[in-house]
C-alpha cells in the first residue's frame, strides 16, 4: 500500500520537481507558536513537515537547533505537546513526521509512541541515532501502525551499510550531505550528489538530502539530483533571530513564509546535475 509520503514523492516526480521538507522543533517559541510557524511554512510551499522533538542532549545538532531545543525544554515542552503539534500540522494535509533522538521514544515505549503518533495523523518518524541493528522494535511498531520509519545514510557509509539502511527505510532515505552537525553552510558540498547516486544504486526509494541547505539557490541545486530537499537550521534561525530581536510573532511568521516560498521556488527549478 502506498503511504502518504509515497504518494507525494510520486506526484512530485510526475511534476518534474523535488519535494521540500521543512524542519522546526515543537514547542518553540511556544507550542502554539511552533504550530503556527509550521502551518505558515506549509502555506508557503513546504510539502512535508518534520516536527522536531526537543531533547536534552542533541549531539547531532549545531548551535541554532540546540538553542531552540533548549528554550523549548525550558518552556516545558513534553512528548504529548509534540504529538499535539503533529496533529495540528497533519491537519493541513502535509505528511508530518517526527524527527527525534531515540531515547524519548524508548522511554515513551516504541509501541505506544507509534500508536499515538498514528492516531495524531503522523506519517512516520526519522530516528537518526537509532541504528538498523537496534531498530527491530521500532520497525515492528511502525509497520503495525502504518508509519514510515526513515533512517539516514552519510558520506562515510559503506555500500553495505547503505543497503542495510535503505532496506529498512520506508517513505524515503535521508541522505546527510556532509560529515557534521546540523547548521547552515555556505555550500552544499560535493559529497551529496555522489551519496545520492550510491543510494539510488541500491533502492527504488526516493532520496532526500539534508544538512546545510539554506537558500533557494541551494535548494535548486540539490533538487537537480535528489527527490527531496530537507531544510532545518535555516528555518529555525528565522524564529531564533525573531525571538532575539523581539520583532514579534507576525514578523517571525512572515519571515518563515518568505524563506519557505524561496525554497519552494528552488525545488521547482532544479539545476540539472553536471555529469
Amino acid at each position: 500500500m502506498q503511504s502518504r509520503l509515497d504518494e507525494r514523492f510520486t506526484a512530485a516526480r510526475e511534476e518534474g520537481r523535488s519535494l521540500l521538507v521543512g524542519y522546526l522543533p515543537a514547542g518553540y517559541p511556544t507550542v502554539d507558536g511552533g504550530i503556527a510557524a509550521m502551518r505558515a511554512m506549509v502555506a508557503a510551499g513546504v510539502d512535508v513537515v518534520e516536527v522536531g522533538l526537543p531533547y536534552s542532549d542533541p549531539t547531532m545538532d549545531g548551535p541554532v537547533i540546540q538553542d531552540a531545543a533548549d528554550a523549548a525544554l525550558r518552556g516545558g515542552v513534553t512528548t504529548a505537546d509534540v504529538l499535539r503539534t503533529v496533529e495540528a500540522v497533519a491537519a493541513t494535509g502535509a505528511p508530518t513526521l517526527v524527527m527525534t533522538y531515540w531515547n524519548p521514544i524508548d522511554r515513551y515505549g516504541p509501541a505506544r509512541f507509534a500508536a499515538d503518533l498514528a492516531a495524531a495523523g503522523g506519517a512516520g518518524a526519522i530516528t537518526p541515532d537509532l541504528p538498523p541493528e537496534e531498530a527491530a522494535p521500532w520497525l515492528a511498531a511502525s509497520a503495525e501502525h502504518g508509519l514510515d520509519p526513515v533512517f539516514l545514510v552519510a558520506p562515510s557509509s559503506s555500500d553495505a551499510r547503505i543497503r542495510l539502511v535503505a532496506g529498512i527505510s520506508r517513505g524515503f532515505v535521508y541522505a546527510a550531505s556532509l560529515m557534521g552537525v546540523t547548521g547552515t553552510r555556505a555550500s552544499v558540498g560535493t559529497h551529496a550528489a555522489d551519496l545520492v547516486a550510491r543510494v539510488r544504486a541500491t533502492t527504488e526509494l526516493p532520496v532526500a538530502v539534508g544538512l546545510g541547505v539554506s537558500t533557494g539557490a541551494q535548494a535548486a541545486e540539490v533538487a537537480g539530483f535528489a527527490d527531496g530537499v530537507i531544510v532545518g537550521s535555516a528555518l529555525v534561525k528565522v524564529l531564533v533571530d525573531a525571538q532575539r530581536s523581539g520583532v514579534g510573532d507576525a514578523a517571525a511568521l512572515d519571515g518563515i513564509g518568505r524563506l519557505a516560498a524561496e525554497l519552494a521556488e528552488g525545488v521547482r527549478a532544479p539545476v540539472p546535475a553536471s555529469a
Binding site: 549531539t59 547531532m60 531515540w102 537518526p128 541515532d129 537509532l130 541504528p131 541493528e133 537496534e134 533512517f151 539516514l152 545514510v153 552519510a154 558520506p155 562515510s156 557509509s157 559503506s158 551499510r161 539502511v165 546527510a176 560529515m179 557534521g180
Partner: peptide
Amino acid sequence: PAGHFGRFGGRFVPEALMAA
C-alpha cells in the same frame, strides 16, 4: 560482537560515525 553486555551497550550513534 555488536557491543552488547546482555541488554545493555550497543551503538546508538548517527550513521556518520558508524564507519569510524
